[in-house]
Amino acid sequence: MREEAKVVVFCCNWSVYPGLQLSHSAAPTGAKGLVDPIVTMCSGRVSPELILEAFSQGAWGVLVAGCPPEECEHNGNYKARRRVLLLQNLLAQMGIEPQRVRFESFSTGESAKLGQTIRGFVEEMRGLGPIE
């Protein structure tokens, strides 16, 4: 049997998590079973250290899901966007495919997009396989 892609999704409690719960109930577009999301209070609270910790513990990919521009109460989404971009550059230097970490934004109502993105990300990580 093929090893399942180990993907970590950090999702914002305010925009993404409600949508994720919805996507779980919508079987055709759902991401149920694929990932066990980690809920954070804001995408701006997802520290790069935490993302590297996930990789060092065997994650194949890490998706940071936050609010779209102008929808975050704390502007944490902008921080997350910049951190993930800089982290991608750093990962490339470490010999790790930069696409293994991604920032995506979702509104509360976008459960279909969320499910689709997670499924797409998991598929992409399946293609890459584990690190090393």
């Binding site: 520290s47 790069p48 250290e49 993302i51 590297l52 910790e53 521009p69 102008e70 502007n75 902008y78 921080k79 910049r82 951190r83 971009l85 800089l86 982290l87 750093l90």
Partner: peptide, 25 residues
Amino acid sequence: GARDQGARSLSFVASLLGIEEEEKM
């Protein structure tokens, strides 16, 4: 308490970059 100095550094530098104009970028 910090586990990874580089990640901590990356975090604060990315936070400060373009913070004033961040909404428009």
